[in-house]
Amino acid sequence: MDAILKFIFSSEAEELYILDCLAYCMIIMALLTFVTLLFENVPYGRYATTRYGFLINVKFAWFVQELPAFFVPVFLVFFTSASRTSHLPNQLLLCMYFCHYVQRSLIYPFLIRGGKSTPFASFALAFVFCIYNGYLQTRYLSHYAEYPSGWVTHPAFILGGLLWLFGWLINVHSDHILRNLRQPGETGYKIPRGGLFEFISGANFFGEIMEWAGFALAGNSVHSLAFAIFTMVVLASRAVAHHKWYLTKFEDYPKSRKALVPFVF
């Protein structure tokens, strides 16, 4: 793997420059995505349509599209000269990343019950993004990120780590609620209840946004910040779309619920 990286980049300085560029490009992509999503929902799940390509089984799509977010980092951490992995801040940040994607790529797809098929365009874009972001986050943290002595006791790292943990727990718990809305053999949609769903329609999205916001705060880099911004743009749009859909679909949908932020929005 080191040989491949040396073939692609003439020096470590050049690779670090490219990583910085990729981070800023992700922020630009987030802004363009924000504008696009003002006019179009992300074509997945209940919004899936063949207009965006042939449909793929949802379990297969989730499993394959998320795999690069796990395997690319594995290769970068264990099969390259990952010189910063002996440092505690880097180790903890990498653990945050891996904890999310082990669950998301190796566990979550096999827990899905039913679910609408995924259009090929959505599947392909997610697959490419997982390669892009997996390389960006993991290569920076494993080989380039330098933190001051005592960074793990800095208020920013502690607060970021707690935000990540609570966000991860909210995300996993909310997914559990959604999976268990239907009994075996049942079809159709139901109003989610319990947990943060009592306050917002997008509890699972809120949790994941919180995760990566905490990751960005603890990571203290443009690379982690870019990921947090992109995640917020995409998932906030999904939460708003879901909220509007629920209000239209169910006459008895709780009117006090907000879309994404409890009591606020």
Rank of each mutant, 00 (worst) to 15 (best):
Y108W: 14
F250H: 06
S149W: 09
T187A: 12
Y253I: 03
S11K: 13
Q65D: 08
T33L: 10
L19F: 09
R113E: 09
K258C: 03
F34A: 13
L92Q: 06
D252R: 12
K190D: 11
V74Q: 07
L37N: 05
T36Y: 15
E186V: 10
I131V: 14
E251F: 07
R104Q: 05
Y144V: 09
V72Y: 01
P89F: 01
N180P: 07
L92D: 05
F197S: 02
M26W: 03
F206Q: 00
R84Y: 08
W62G: 01
L163V: 09
F206N: 00
C99E: 08
F199P: 03
Q65G: 05
L5P: 07
F166W: 11
L217G: 01
H143F: 10
I200A: 00
E211S: 04
D175T: 06
F110V: 08
S86R: 13
F265Y: 11
P73V: 02
V261Y: 04
G167H: 00
F110D: 09
A48L: 04
A203W: 00
F75M: 14
W151E: 09
F263T: 07
V42K: 00
H242N: 14
R179K: 13
L217I: 13
L55P: 06
T33C: 12
A3W: 14
V64H: 06
A121I: 14
L165T: 11
T248E: 14
E211A: 05
W151M: 11
F205I: 01
S149T: 13
E186A: 10
R84V: 09
F129M: 07
L92Y: 06
A156H: 14
S224K: 01
A13L: 15
W62H: 07
I4M: 13
S201H: 03
C95G: 15
W245K: 03
F98P: 01
L125K: 10
A126G: 13
G207L: 01
Y17E: 14
M26E: 03
W245M: 09
A61W: 01
S149G: 11
S224Y: 02
D175H: 08
A156V: 12
T49P: 08
H154E: 14
G188V: 12
Y101H: 04
L141G: 00
T187L: 11
Y17P: 05
Y246S: 03
L111C: 12
F120K: 09
V240N: 02
T248P: 02
R113F: 08
L88D: 10
Y17H: 14
A226W: 00
C21P: 08
V102A: 15
F9A: 10
G53F: 05
L55E: 09
F205T: 01
Y108T: 05
S142I: 03
Y132W: 11
F263Q: 09
R113V: 08
S10D: 15
M232Q: 03
D2H: 15
V222E: 07
F63I: 08
R46K: 15
S142G: 12
S10H: 15
W168A: 02
S174D: 04
A126P: 05
R139S: 04
Y246A: 05
G161I: 04
T80K: 10
A69Q: 01
L32S: 12
L67Q: 10
V240P: 00
A203R: 00
A23V: 03
L92H: 06
L247D: 01
R113T: 11
